[in-house]
Design a binder for these strands. Structure first.
Length: 941
DNA sequence: AACAATCCATA
DNA sequence: GTATGGATTGTTT
């Protein structure tokens, strides 16, 4: 069969028929993580609704003339179940939180005026197949929108598939290219392979490759069956074993194309949308975007939606306990995008005019444009400002493309701006100002008056919303689509740096950045202010911390690249040896780093028993599994050593030296202040918070973190901070006393649980107690504890019961936390940082349990984060007072601060720093910081 | 080039 | 069982 050249002879004047596989949309939308958190204020999940409707919308955009028909599966069994009772028997039941979204979707689609087909007794596929067949016969161009590959059998000269996610269309040639067989061979192909998910039997070990090979040879499954005795080897046996089953598989894989329908493909057509019904439904399910768009009117109708929206968008009080989902509604002040006036400043006169306004204003938003996203490499290209909403200016400085207009002198402009930027009284508003502060510091400007950072505002307001970049914020809080950096600079290898971008284009982008930042501040800050605790975390912790982090990043840390290079070499040698050994043991050469190849070798070729599976169902080759297998087999042991060493080499010894700045000869990480849900910092480029410590080899890497000449590395960490916080929060008498008396807490716990004297506690008992203590912090279950300690579930339960019996305050605290989380939808740290838990009342038990564990952990982890942040503020304050460049704070690793201190003053300075950290906050138990001093980070521990 | 899956480093 | 970032392989834009 060849692709017909006559496909043009179809009736082009008729609008194409678009058949939508609604059920495939539904499942896909349901599994999009970003959408899973969505729900209405009263807890009805809306993620799948939103996702499905978005997909319909994009379909409409792609096929403006399309005649869209929606087809969904009906409830209950189908004729395939009668044929084969095991059909789809492996499918888990539909989750409740998906089920409840189906009816709304149907209602909305109907209100949109689209024909909706839900036919019992058959699957959506069969309805689609029937319509596609009819359309094909009528010569109507048809597009089937689905994620299901099985539908490839329906493709003809007039019928194509489109994968909505990838927007890839597949015609006859496309099917052949993709699958290696023609559309009319797809059923044969599917039948031979079988389908695990749908529980369709096929030929064992026959995958796509084999099926294609056979069909290329014989054309159809019937012919393959007829020639079954000629196939050699194991796979030939498998084929012959499957002969009886294959006709059934063929039937099951065949989409039924003669379902009886009330209307034919030629008759079905959309009707006018019922705008009022839509507005009501969108409002009911709080679909803000859709409601807004309804007002804008693709159909040019009514403004009902928009009017309702402005009434509805009244700020929800953050204390409102009905708001359980963590989804917050903010009053949107600047919904209408008014006239904007963006100045591009190329002459002195206009610049001075702006300068005057800036000098006399209370606060302004500003943004720097640079050549790089890395603060150490970035050079300023221009700066932008906004004082009032809608009016912004961009001052280009160093655009240097061919024919770039003459620009104001960079040094002169920065000199003019310096007093302004360094003023503590004129407030600055920005988005991620730490970056701007770092860049400006390279121009001898110390940014001050950093009062409002919209990224931090958004983070304090809701830390669970993972993205706090400007584009996301503008969309969320202003319902405004910004110009993206990639829109002006391109992306990938061809991306331009900002200095290469035309001033006109760059100016609009940059000025908009400043303008939007200002608007965001006006949108988010008032909402943040409504909750005193959130405001205080913002004002007392996060904003003051920003310049402290900037200073630490600027300072960087010193590493000895030679030590690392040497270690890389040694590691490389050992890795080569291990590779040879592994290949010998396996009897063939393979990639040690590939879990997939390793699975094959271990579990298929060597027939080693499978102990655990990955979440996706493949046999796991994770460390704990190999650890266990290593007892009985040689290969896993080699793999384990290889894994450990290659991780060290690629992530640390090879990589770190490459990241040393040529400007300073030091390593400069980026601390992220708006990433974690719990309030911790995170670190990237490089991540200094996961430098190895546990293994002997790993500690060598810490030895490369050295002090400069005449200096020492001082590491000070909080001892048992999270358990101390648990003691404080729970106010459990026994726990508080144990800490107050300065006891070894794990030992004390062991004495209580195992009912022995303190000095009779064995190492084993202490280890168990330690696991229990850690487990408590993680919201552990008896099941988890059992796994950790390799003991039975019952015994783990006994330990846990005993613990709660001895420390009843902890039990009460855990129960209260869970209840509080469930009632208010969030938990708080000691200092008021709030963590929303959208899943806390989820119908899905797993997700609910996970949210409960997070609810237990967050106050402890988050309070620890608050405390060390406060300590950093205290330390930084003291350092500024000292104004002594022999002392530098260089790193933060969650419960540890690392310093570089001149040897002459190291003892007394360390004592002072420990004192500052100990007194960072007042708890009902002592807060203990422990210090270590050495020539490198390893020694300092 | 971008993304998922898997594994592993830290607190 | 909590919270992260990153390297690798393997698949698909």
């Amino acid at each position: 069969m060849t692709i017909s050249a006559t496909s043009q002879d179809s009736n082009n004047t008729q609008s194409p028929l678009i058949l939508v596989d609604g059920s495939s949309y539904l499942f896909r939308a349901y599994h999009v993580p970003y959408l899973q958190a969505l729900s209405t204020a009263d807890g009805q999940p809306t993620g799948a609704i939103t996702g499905v409707l978005n997909m319909f919308r994009s379909l409409k955009k792609d096929y403006p003339n399309g005649n869209i028909i929606a087809i969904f599966d009906a409830k209950g069994k189908t004729f395939r179940n009668d044929m084969y009772p095991e059909y789809k028997a492996n499918r888990p039941p539909m989750p409740d939180d998906l089920r409840t979204q189906i009816a709304p979707i149907h209602e909305i689609i109907t209100a949109m005026g689209l024909p909706l087909l839900v036919i019992p007794g058959v699957e959506a596929d069969d309805v689609i197949g029937t319509l596609a067949r009819q359309a094909d016969e009528l010569g109507i161009e048809t597009v089937i929108s689905t994620g299901d590959k099985d539908m490839a059998q329906l493709v003809t000269q007039h019928v194509r598939l489109i994968n909505t996610m990838t927007d890839v269309e597949m015609d006859v040639a496309g099917v052949s290219e993709k699958f290696g067989v023609r559309p009319d061979q797809i059923i044969d192909y599917l039948a031979l392979m079988g389908d695990k998910v749908d529980n369709i039997p096929g030929v064992v070990k026959c995958g796509p490759k084999t099926a294609v090979k056979w069909l290329a040879e014989h054309g159809t499954m019937q012919e393959v069956i007829a020639n079954a005795d000629k196939v050699k080897g194991k796979i030939g046996e498998n084929l012959r074993d499957a002969l009886e089953q294959l006709p059934l598989s063929y039937q099951l894989a065949t989409i039924k194309c003669d379902v009886e329908l009330e209307q034919t493909a030629g008759e079905l057509a959309a009707s006018e949308p019922d705008v009022d019904a839509l507005a009501e439904l969108y409002q009911k399910f709080e679909l803000k975007r859709l409601l807004a768009d309804l007002g804008k009117g693709d159909s040019g109708t009514s403004t009902t939606g928009a009017a309702k929206k402005s009434k509805k968008a009244k700020a929800t009080n953050a204390n409102d306990s009905s708001n359980l989902a963590g989804e917050q509604v903010v009053e949107i002040k600047a919904v209408e995008v008014e006239e904007t006036q963006y100045d591009i400043i190329l002459d002195k006169a206009l610049f001075e005019q702006w300068l005057k306004k800036l000098q006399t204003c209370e606060a302004f938003a500003f943004d720097t444009e640079t050549t790089s996203v890395h603060y150490m490499k970035a050079e300023i290209v221009g700066v932008s400002f906004a004082i009032e909403v809608g009016k912004a200016a961009y001052v280009p400085l160093t655009h240097d493309y061919v024919d770039a207009p003459e620009q104001l002198d960079k040094d002169w402009v920065l000199a003019q701006l310096k007093p302004l930027l360094e003023s503590k009284t004129i407030k600055k508003i920005g988005q991620n100002l730490k970056y701007d502060a770092n860049v400006l510091s390279h121009y001898d400007i110390t940014l001050q008056g950093i009062d409002f950072d919209t990224m931090i505002e958004s983070y304090c307001y809701n830390s669970v919303a993972t993205r706090h970049n400007m584009d996301a914020l503008a969309l969320k809080y202003l319902d405004y689509q910004t110009v993206h950096f990639e829109d002006v600079a391109g992306k990938g290898a061809k991306q331009l740096t900002f200095n290469q971008i035309e001033i006109e284009k760059a100016g609009h982008y940059a000025a908009e950045d400043a303008d939007i930042t200002l608007r965001l501040h006006h949108a988010i800050f008032p909402a943040l202010e409504q909750t005193a605790s959130m405001l205080s975390v913002f004002n007392e912790i996060e904003m003051p911390l920003l310049p402290v982090l900037a200073r630490m990043e600027q300072t960087g840390v010193l590493i000895d690249s030679d030590i690392l290079a040497e270690q890389s070499f040694t590691l490389g040698q050992r890795l080569d040896e291990l590779e040879i050994e592994a290949h010998n043991l396996a009897g063939k050469s393979f990639n040690l780093a590939s879990p997939k190849q390793l699975q094959q070798i271990l579990f298929e070729e060597l027939q080693i028993p499978v102990i655990k599976k990955t979440p996706k169902g493949a046999p796991s080759t994770a460390e704990e599994v190999l650890q266990e297998l290593a007892l009985d087999y040689p290969l896993p042991k080699v793999i384990l050593e290889n894994r450990g060493l290659s991780k060290l080499k690629s992530t640390y010894t090879d990589k770190l030296p490459l990241m040393v700045s040529d400007k300073t000869g030091r390593l400069h990480t980026s601390y992220h202040q708006a990433v974690t849900a719990t309030g911790r910092l995170s670190s990237t480029d490089p991540n200094l918070q996961n430098i190895p410590i546990r293994s002997e080899q790993g500690r060598k890497i810490r030895q490369a973190f050295i002090a400069p000449k005449d200096h020492k590395i001082v590491a000070i960490d909080y001892s048992q901070i999270e358990l101390r916080i648990m003691a404080h929060l729970s106010n459990d008498k026994g726990l508080v006393t144990a800490f107050s008396e300065g006891k070894d807490i794990h030992k004390a716990t062991a004495a209580e649980i195992f009912a022995v004297e303190l000095d009779e506690v064995t190492t084993d008992q202490r280890r168990s107690a330690k696991a229990i203590n850690f487990g408590l912090i993680y919201g552990m279950s008896a099941f988890g504890l059992a796994k950790q300690l390799h003991i039975g579930r019952q015994q783990a339960q006994e330990y846990q019961d005993k613990y709660f019996q001895r420390y009843p305050g902890v039990l009460t605290y855990m129960e209260d936390t869970r209840q509080q989380a469930s009632e208010q939808g969030y938990v708080e740290t000691l200092y008021g940082r709030r963590l929303y838990l959208p899943d806390i009342n989820a119908k899905n038990g797993m997700r609910k349990k996970a949210a409960e564990r997070a609810a237990i952990n967050a106050p402890m982890q988050g309070t620890a984060a608050d405390i060390i942040k406060k300590a950093m503020l205290a330390v930084d304050h003291w350092l500024l007072e000292q104004n002594d460049d022999r002392i530098k704070m260089t790193m933060q690793v969650h419960d540890e601060l690392i310093f570089e201190i001149h040897q002459d003053i190291v003892e007394e300075t360390t004592a002072k720093l420990v004192e500052l950290m100990n007194n960072a906050v007042e708890l009902s138990v002592p807060l203990i910081a422990e210090s270590g001093i050495g020539d490198n980070w390893d020694e300092a521990h």
